[in-house]
Design a protein around this nucleic acid. Structure first.
Lengths: 224, 224
DNA sequence: GCAAAAGTGTTAGGAGTACACCCATGC
DNA sequence: GCATGGGTGTACTCCTAACACTTTTGC
C-alpha cells in the first residue's frame, strides 16, 4: 500500500549533529563544506542520511565519523526537524543531536568524498548554512546552554583534571555571560558534579589553582 | 543514488501523539485499538504515517483528527524514536508529541477505518501497547510533568474559569504528588500564569472559592 | 451550631547574589 | 616587593517548606 501511495513515497531520515567545542574562551561549532548538489559549496553541520540497519544515534555517530574522523563522542538528541521543503531532493526529516568535544584532542579529517574543509567556526561568525541547518544550530546552542548548568556534558572538554577558573571561562563562553568567581565556585561545587583531587595546577594566575575532576558517577537530582 | 541503495530504501516517518486528560483526579491517555496487522488488536497511541505534503506538526494533528475526531488541539514535540526494529513493516522513525485536552469537551469518534474503541485509559492501567508505544508513552508522561510546572499547557483543561483547589487536584494527578494548599496557591500565583477574575464559584467545599483564569499572554521568564 | 472545605500569614532553612580581604607565586 | 590571578567568608534577599487558625457556606 504505502509504496504505491505518492503521499508516502521517497521519505528519508537525516541525522544531524551540532558538535561544539570551546577554544580559549570562544565557543565554536564544527562545519563541513558540501561538494555536491544540493547546496553545493555551502557549509553545513555534520550529518547525513540514516541507514536502515542502524539506530538513530548510531547513524548520527557514523556520519560524524565519516565526515570528520571523530570517534568516541557522546551525543544527545534534542529535536526533529521536518518542514516539507527542508530538503529539495526528497522528503527528509532530520533528527538533530548535540555533542561536545575538545577540538585539541581530535585530528579532523578535513576532506571526505562528500565534504571538504571541515573546521571549527566561532558561533558568532557562522557563514550561511545549507538546508535548515541555521535553524538547527540555533536551537542546538540553546539546548547546549540548558544542559551545561545541570549535567556533566562538559566532561568531554575536561576528561581529566581542571581548575575552577578554567572551567568557569568555558561556562562563560557557552552561556555568553560573566559570573562572580566566588559564587561560581560555590554553585559548581554544590551541583555535586566535580570533586577535589588534592592536587594543584596552573592556569592563568600566578598562584597555583586547585585541580578538580568530574565525578565518575553522577547522581541525577530530583527537581520535585 | 539514494533510491537504488538498499541502505536508504523504504524509510518512512510516523507522527505519534500521547494525548492526556485529567478526569476526577485521574490522569488518562487516549488509546486506540488497531484493526490491521501489524499489532492487530493491540492498543496504541494516536498517530500514523506522515504525508509528504505536510509539516510534522500538521501531520500529527491530522492523524489525531482522523483517528479520534479531535480538532483544535495544541501539541508539542518532545522526542524522535528510531530503533531499527520499532516497526516490523519497514524502517519507520517516529516523531512524538504530547497534547492535553479536556475529555469532557470532545466527542470521540471511536471507530475509524484503521482503528476502533478509542478511549481514555488511566495511566496506571495501561494495557500492553503495540510498536514501541509503551516507551513513547513513558517518556511523554515525564515530559508532560516537566511542562506543567512552568507553562500554561493545562490551559486546555481549564480554558475558562477555575478554582485553585480544582487545578491543584489536576497538578497532583499529573505529578502524582500532594501539595500543601497554602504553598501551592502562593507558588502558582507567583508563576504569573493565572489571574483573579473577582468572581467566585464552587468546587468541593461549602465555602465558595475564588475563580481564576489563565492569562491570555504569558511572558516567558528567563532562567539565566 | 457544626461539618467541610476555602482562605490567609508567619517562620525557619537553603539557595542565590553582592561584595572585600588574604594568599601564593613570577618577575 | 609588587603585580596577578586564586582562594575564602559574610550578610542580605528571595524562594521554599512547614505549619494553625479563621471564614463562609450547607445542612
Amino acid at each position: 500500500m504505502r509504496k504505491t501511495n505518492a503521499l508516502y513515497k521517497n521519505q528519508g531520515i537525516h541525522v544531524i549533529t551540532a558538535i561544539f567545542t570551546v577554544e580559549l574562551g570562544v565557543t565554536k561549532v564544527l562545519l563541513v563544506k558540501r561538494k555536491n548538489e544540493p547546496y553545493k559549496g555551502d557549509w553545513i553541520l555534520t550529518g547525513g542520511a540514516l541507514y536502515n540497519n542502524e539506530d538513530l544515534e548510531a547513524g548520527a555517530k557514523r556520519e560524524i565519523f565519516e565526515k570528520t574522523g571523530i570517534k568516541d563522542i557522546e551525543i544527545e538528541q534534542f529535536k526533529a526537524f521536518g518542514d516539507v521543503n527542508r530538503s529539495p531532493v526528497m522528503r527528509m526529516v532530520a533528527v538533530a543531536y548535540i555533542g561536545v568535544i575538545d577540538s585539541s584532542r581530535v585530528k579532523l579529517i578535513r576532506e571526505t568524498i562528500n565534504t571538504s574543509n571541515a573546521d571549527w567556526f566561532p558561533i558568532d561568525k557562522i557563514p550561511g548554512l545549507g538546508f535548515d541547518h541555521e535553524e538547527i544550530l540555533k536551537e542546538a546552542l540553546i539546548y547546549l546552554q540548558s544542559k551545561i548548568v545541570s549535567t556533566d556534558i562538559l566532561k568531554a572538554l575536561f576528561p581529566n583534571e581542571f581548575t575552577i577558573p578554567e572551567i568557569q571561562k568555558t561556562y562563560e563562553a557557552i552561556l555568553n555571560k560573566k559570573f562572580d568567581r566566588r559564587n561560581f565556585r560555590k554553585k559548581l561545587l554544590s551541583l555535586d558534579l566535580i570533586e577535589d583531587t588534592n592536587k594543584t595546577g596552573r592556569f592563568e594566575g600566578k598562584k597555583p589553582a586547585k585541580l578538580y575532576k568530574f565525578k565518575d558517577v553522577i547522581e541525577s537530582k530530583k527537581v520535585f
